[in-house]
Design a protein around this nucleic acid. Sequence first.
DNA 1: TGAGCCAATAAAATCGTTTCCAACGCTATG
DNA 2: CATAGCGTTGGAAACGATTTTATTGGCTCA
Lengths: 348, 348
Amino acid sequence: MRQELGRSATIRDVAAVSGVSVGTVSRSLNAPETVRPATLEKVRAAIQELGFQPDARAQNMRRRNTLTIGFIVNDILNPIHAMVFKGAEAELRESGYWLHLVNTGGKARQEAEAIDLLQHGRVDGLLMTINSEQDPRCLERLEKLRVPSVLLDREIALETDAVRTDHASGMEQAVGYLLDLGHRRIGLITAGTEILPGRERIRGFTQAFAKRGVPCPADLIRSQSLSADFGFRETLDFLRGPGRPTALVAGGNQLLVGVLRAIEQQGVVIPRDLSLVTCDRTDLASVYAGGITAIDRDIPEIGRTAAQLLLERINGPADWPARRVVLPTRLVLGRSCAPPAVRAETAA
Amino acid sequence: MRQELGRSATIRDVAAVSGVSVGTVSRSLNAPETVRPATLEKVRAAIQELGFQPDARAQNMRRRNTLTIGFIVNDILNPIHAMVFKGAEAELRESGYWLHLVNTGGKARQEAEAIDLLQHGRVDGLLMTINSEQDPRCLERLEKLRVPSVLLDREIALETDAVRTDHASGMEQAVGYLLDLGHRRIGLITAGTEILPGRERIRGFTQAFAKRGVPCPADLIRSQSLSADFGFRETLDFLRGPGRPTALVAGGNQLLVGVLRAIEQQGVVIPRDLSLVTCDRTDLASVYAGGITAIDRDIPEIGRTAAQLLLERINGPADWPARRVVLPTRLVLGRSCAPPAVRAETAA
DNA sequence: TGAGCCAATAAAATCGTTTCCAACGCTATG
DNA sequence: CATAGCGTTGGAAACGATTTTATTGGCTCA
């Protein structure tokens, strides 16, 4: 109970109290089997007495690592990102790692800055969802990265470990399901083509039509952003415009928020007036209208897999080739889809 | 472009290249006004050439800080926590701090462990929502804490800076609103009394009845957990049991998920069959049934305020008394409340 | 011309740990 | 009895920066 208000006890204090050298104290902590039991006992008693705990800063300095992984993300408020985080954290904690979470808001400048600042001894590795796949500032930094990294659901023109989702197949399956129900005017709202999920979802969407030999309604593909606002605007446009779709795919969980806002505002009833499919079974998706049919995936698994790739990269030889893991999706049926209502113009 | 694959350049390399001493390089970085312009130029050129950036580990070691704040949280998937995080991060980043996020799952053992491991040079301060307000392990650790900390929406038997929400007033206002609509059988589902929000919400609930001289239906207070499962179970019990309430308050945003699941399952229509009030305007709350009436608060402000308290504590004198900030709530009306339907038993 | 002063810089100490190496004591062996 | 070998330990050198102290050189002014 000394040192109560002064500075913390150091390994030197422990050495002094237990009457051994600092080296021996250090070995008592890190390799107790090399220390004589009697000595170990003395050291442990001193540690107990002083309430000593090694200073992490000094350990980081000397060991040249930090046991910390940087997690760069667009928006932690997005439940998908939060679940990936939890999956990664659970996996990494088992190996003694911590996570530094950095929220960028998806802005390229912030992302570049985060990459910069997380290097040079702040973290031992990086997990990230970089939104600016083509931004030169980000690319340049990623190219010079001095720590291992794993890219989440993104694609850049560099050899990088990555964990992706097979959005295309998922979308193809979902749209196939809607086509089989009889829908032809199917709308898609999703991210812009500058990020992988946007490109992949559009690909799956058009492929579903192609495979069935049905012409794809290009005017119903709205690909620009994953924001709720965009979802709201485009859904309103769909609902109020001519050639209104009979089914809609919300290609993103935040988009769904906007889509539902518009649906509520217009008094549209799901699935009577409109069939709806969304991506990822968030709370909102699973509750609304008794459950919205969703292109689902095992989100924590993304984090776990990314963590494993990263750990292997940290511990393994540096010259391994880049690895890409693609995780599957599955269609979870809810109560949000029905055959299209026979409408005047269609019947005529 | 040297050092490409070898180790990073150190301050010593910069000194060698620019022909000055390491001290001068350090001053060029941290106090350029004390260095002759010509020298500064040489140093900067060398830094540029070598791509030097100071090693954060060494800086932490020498400066005896880390510019990192630990953020201990129950569950980052909870949008409330994520928003608090974002608020705190925005504020702290301006002062150069980073956030270490640790997810505990609300388990006392994990919380105690997190506190332990975040000390001793890993972080300069702590923001936390400790769920185990009474757990002796946690209390013991918090008592011996060597870094400043701010408690979020919790109360412990120690002198600690804290940011809270005036849940009691918010609840009182909401229940008053329901009473004024004519409801008498009002149900409350919320956290157990072992955490502050649980206690406060129950206090506000009973107070609203007391102030109006209406007897409080003690059988309708279900106080145990903030989980969706608990919300689901208790709502089912309410809906299927005798003396079914005409209005329900979901005292927690995760609880609401379970409440709505039960409501959907039972085919209850809001607000025709049941009036509903929730806590916090999450996406789900603002979308469902055209918007659920909510006891709202400025969540990011909680994070910002906590960050400010922490920064002042870090930079200020150590012997300041503990400060507690209580933030207000406001009732945001949605379309989820209506006067109670006149039912057979009531009319008789 | 040289003492005194100031600004700029070099040199050295420091932070707290880990790790390397030398030295020590003991046992076993030739 | 000398010595090789082993297990254990002490002492010191890292790690890469910051900070303190000492030194240098140039300048002013008597």
